[in-house]
Nucleic acid binder design. Structure first.
Length: 648
DNA sequence: CAATCAACTTAGTACCTAAAAC
DNA sequence: GTTTTAGGTACTAAGTTGATTG
């Protein structure tokens, strides 16, 4: 097992060399020549061609670079309408790297300033009333508001909180308040509960007023102008200060997330746009004009020191194009996935350890849809892993288990500290390799000690332009949906039953991607309710059937029009109730199966929307049954372009 | 190379609101 | 009309990826 160093990687030329060219002939329709590193650029070459055809047929000429003013219609029609229908997907794209030509916005909305507590709301230290300085009080309220949440009982949370809180105290406060356990926030907590109760009890008018105020804010700050089009901003409000709550066992939980001031803010917009004004008496940290990026506002957050951004809504051109591209890359993977699979199987036999590790890791990523798994700084975040960062302690090898050979048992915490637990039969070679990788290692050692995401992605790049680890997730998710829909959709089913099939297909993907959720708090109860509804409906059905029967008997005896009619209407009633019952039962099944599975994430991020659109068209299902309004906005491009014969 | 930074996607949950049930 | 429930949205944390820096 010679060499450690990653240099060696290149000793053996990647044998898949011919692979990436596999669709070289599609090469980018335009603005090309430089890409190389921006693999994605040519992704939708094929779709673009499709688009061009479409446009031609509509005699709608592609305009040159400039996004173009909506010339004529500008005054004919109200602008609004024009904006809503803008089909960015029919326009030519910008050259590589340029994200926009013009950008104007109003800047962020800051968190409302702190409002000190009324005098009668007390804080107690060691049993005695204590008046806190404004700054200390503000931080105390953050804690008070979380009082009945369990993490305020956690050691780390309390420790971090207390440390940061003390930083906000005056020197007197600091010397008095030396122990968190002597602090009594209950009065404050009660006050906030009363406040939120009062908010619920507000009159119609008051609520209306708040709603209007929100709408005003949205109208003023929620949109920007990007290249002649008004686009919705995703998150125009700056995150308010509060206590950091990481997910899982986060070492920084409870730390103070500080208030963001205009002086922290970098504004990004066009030079020739109306530059947003900072709040009176304040200045921006910086104003820049960088059209190589998509964000409008950024600031550095104090917990991890990472940068946060204000960006556009998923319905925007800039997000939509990228999303579309993502699926095109996944479709390119579809074309060469067999080759890649053969390759990594070969690599299981390599004499180079790192090649074997890479190949086994890739197998997991492909087969199990694991995430890449970057290494993380210890003590900065919760201890979670992905494929490349798996440790020996995260898998167990069973030469035989429940009648299956070569079973690998995975048990680890992944993104968001969601547990991944799975027992998977693998090929013998994989199994043997894993044994090899684990030899002489401690549980806390890396399983793939010669591999990281960077090495893996570099390799993938060689196999296919634009290929990275996450493309496998997208590909496997989308292809699974397509297959499952084919398999599960029964042409004779009615619409609710077909939708159940859709949801089951979606669910298969969610399970593959391990998209879990906490069972809703009211799950059991709502299940019971549904069941009793079903029972009631069953009884109703039985009644209706009895009535039908007697009506039939009656009709047989009387043989008149009236009784015949009665039979008919009773028949109809039975049918109607049967249908209702079915619907309820379907609903119950769907909900039960969904107890711990979240469908939203895969729907929004992994499933090529054109598959769903095509399915809807094919079976006459209204698209509204599958995508709600927001989703339809996000996927407008797919809804517009996919026909029923679309193949992922 | 490894570490860090920057930009962007993906993620679950808390909260809100509208619709349904009572 | 009031309460309950479900669905949708806002929020923001936690990933991935590629570039830059040392």
């Amino acid at each position: 097992m010679a060499a450690h160093s990653v240099k060696d990687m290149h000793i053996f030329p990647p044998r898949i060399k011919d692979e990436p060219d596999d669709d070289g002939f599609f090469s980018s329709p335009k603005e090309d020549s430089k890409p190389l590193k921006r693999p994605r650029e040519d992704d939708d070459s094929s779709s673009n061609r499709f688009l061009l055809i479409l446009q031609d047929s509509k005699a709608k000429k592609v305009k040159s670079k400039d996004k173009k003013v909506p010339e004529a219609d500008k005054r004919k029609k109200p602008k609004k309408e024009e904006e809503q229908k803008w089909k960015w997907w029919e326009e030519e794209r910008y050259p590589e790297g340029i994200k926009w030509k013009f950008l104007e916005h109003k800047g962020p909305v800051f968190a409302p300033p702190y409002e000190p507590l009324p005098e009668n709301v007390k804080f107690y230290y060691d049993g005695k009333v204590m008046k806190l300085s404004t700054k200390a009080e503000e931080v105390a309220t953050f804690f008070a508001k979380m009082l009945d949440h369990e993490y305020t009982t956690k050691e780390i949370f309390r420790k971090n909180f207390f440390k940061d809180w003390r930083k906000e105290m005056t020197s007197e406060e600091k010397s008095t308040i030396t122990s968190l356990s002597k602090c009594d926030f209950t009065h404050m907590s009660q006050y906030f509960k009363a406040q939120s109760e009062a908010r619920k009890q507000m009159s119609k008018e008051e609520k209306q007023k708040i709603k209007e105020e929100n709408e005003r804010l949205l109208k003023e700050y929620g949109y920007c102008v990007m290249d002649n089009h008004k686009e919705r901003i995703a998150n125009f409000k700056i995150e308010p200060p509060g206590l950091f709550r990481g997910r899982g066992n986060h070492p920084k939980m409870g730390m103070l997330k500080r208030r963001i001031m205009p002086e922290d803010i970098i504004i990004n917009c066009s030079k020739d746009s109306k530059i947003p004004a900072p709040p009176p008496g304040h200045k921006w940290k910086e104003v820049r004009h960088d059209n190589k990026v998509t964000w409008l506002v950024s600031w550095t957050e104090n917990i991890q020191g990472s940068i946060k951004y204000i960006m556009l809504n998923p319905s925007s051109r800039i997000k939509g194009e990228k999303d579309w591209q993502k699926y095109e890359t996944a479709r390119r993977l579809k074309k060469c996935v067999d080759k890649i699979r053969n390759q990594y199987r070969e690599d299981w036999k390599s004499k180079e350890m790192k090649v074997r590790q890479r190949a086994v890791a890739l197998y997991f990523i492909d087969k199990l849809a694991l995430r890449a798994g970057n290494e993380k700084e210890e003590g900065e975040t919760a201890d979670t892993v992905g494929c490349c960062s798996l440790r020996v302690e995260h898998i167990k090898l069973h030469p035989e288990l429940d009648g299956q050979e070569y079973v690998v048992e995975f048990d680890f915490l992944g993104k968001d500290s969601i547990r991944y637990y799975n027992k998977v039969p693998v090929e013998k070679r994989v199994f043997k390799n894993l044994q090899l990788f684990m030899e002489n290692k401690q549980p806390e050692d890396d399983l793939f000690d010669r591999l990281n995401t960077s090495i893996l992605n570099k390799h993938l790049q060689d196999l296919m332009e634009g290929l990275t680890a996450k493309v496998f997730r997208t590909y496997n998710a989308s292809i699974t949906l397509q297959q499952q829909l084919k398999e599960l959709t029964n042409p004779d089913d009615n619409i609710p039953a077909k939708i159940l099939s859709y949801n089951r297909a979606n669910r298969a993907v969610a399970i593959l991607c391990n998209h879990q959720r906490a069972p809703p708090k009211t799950f059991e109860k709502s299940m019971m309710n549904l069941q009793s509804k079903i029972d009631a409906k069953k009884e109703q059905l039985a009644d209706a059937r009895r009535e039908l029967k007697s009506a039939k008997a009656d009709a047989k005896v009387r043989r008149d029009e009236k009784s015949k009619k009665s039979v008919e209407s009773k028949k109809k009633a039975v049918q109607r109730i049967e249908e209702q019952l079915m619907k309820l039962e379907v609903q119950a099944t769907d909900r039960e199966e969904n107890k711990q599975i979240a469908l939203g994430t895969s729907k929004l991020n992994y499933l090529d929307p054109r598959i769903s659109v095509a399915w809807c068209k094919k079976w006459g299902i209204p698209i509204e049954k599958i995508y709600n309004k927001t989703q339809r906005e996000k996927f407008a491009w797919a809804i517009d372009m996919a026909e029923e014969d679309y193949e992922f």
